[in-house]
């Protein structure tokens, strides 16, 4: 498992070309997530952010390029196989199993795991980490508020004990209170050693907690660098900061 362990990159996308039918979404995209970091992918609407996450998860297969996870090529693997290697997903719009209870949703997150006792331990840990979730544990997930659902989605992804967690616009549609809470939680999760790849439209929010950022513009990485530098970069200020959803 760990030839790549000595190197810094946990996830590495290189030369990715993606298409939907004839329409090209990514053009020779390169991107890395270093071990232990929070990396955010910024970009406007329809720039190809969600598709990037789908490429990582194997839901969309790139026509060219490779995805490496922990040093190994996972480009051709099925989504379940990729998940089983230690990637967790918080999909766009959360995508909870609405008719199942919160508890069942969390346990679905541990679907690939066989270590019953450890799963139970993680389950208790999630209830501690997300008290709001604990209160609603026997409710159907579909009846929760947007913020609560986001918590469940994050807890569900963590139940798989991922080494990398991928999140697609985790703050979208949340009240300001929940936005802050979610950002704090992402930072906390990262402190526990989980690397984070996070897709966001709202650059100012994401760069608050990220270590490194990429800016995607119509399928091309237009800018990248440490989060602090990006936040001060006038080009990104022009293009993205103060986007319609800035929370202050």
């Amino acid at each position: 498992m760990s030839e790549g362990g000595s190197r810094g990159d946990l996830l590495e996308l290189s030369g990715i070309d993606t298409f939907y039918g004839p329409a090209q979404v990514h053009f020779a995209m390169n991107l890395e997530v270093r071990r232990g970091q929070i990396v955010c992918l910024l970009g406007g609407n329809a720039s190809g952010k969600s598709t990037t996450m789908k490429v990582i998860l194997g839901l969309v297969k790139p026509r060219a390029g490779t995805v490496r996870f922990d040093g190994q090529d996972i480009t051709g693997l099925s989504t379940p196989a990729i998940i089983a290697r230690g990637i967790g997903s918080v999909p766009e719009a959360r995508r909870l199993f609405g008719a199942m209870t919160v508890r069942e949703n969390l346990l679905m997150g541990a679907y690939t795991r066989r270590d019953r006792a450890e799963v139970n331990h993680d389950y208790d840990r999630m209830l501690g980490l997300f008290p709001r979730v604990a209160q609603r544990i026997n409710n159907r997930a579909g009846t929760l508020s947007g913020g609560e659902q986001q918590m469940v989605a994050m807890a569900r992804a963590l139940m798989g004990r991922p080494r990398l967690i991928c999140m697609d616009e985790p703050t979208m549609g949340l009240s300001p209170l929940y936005v802050d809470r979610v950002l704090e939680l992402i930072a906390a999760i990262n402190k526990e050693g989980v690397s984070v790849f996070m897709v966001e439209q709202n650059a100012s929010l994401a760069l608050q907690i990220a270590h490194h950022g990429y800016v995607l513009r119509t399928g091309v990485i237009a800018l990248s660098g440490p989060a602090g530098e990006l936040a001060r970069d006038p080009r990104i200020r022009d293009a993205y900061l103060g986007g319609e959803r800035t929370a202050a």
Binding site: P80, I83, M100, M108, Y111
Partner: peptide
């Protein structure tokens, strides 16, 4: 059952189910 849960999850949202590792 584990597989039964997978069936229900797939019925509700098959793409999300795959992202939980469901085949």
């Amino acid at each position: 059952s584990r597989l039964g849960w997978a069936v229900r999850a797939t019925a509700q949202d098959s793409e999300a189910a795959r992202q939980m590792g469901v085949n």
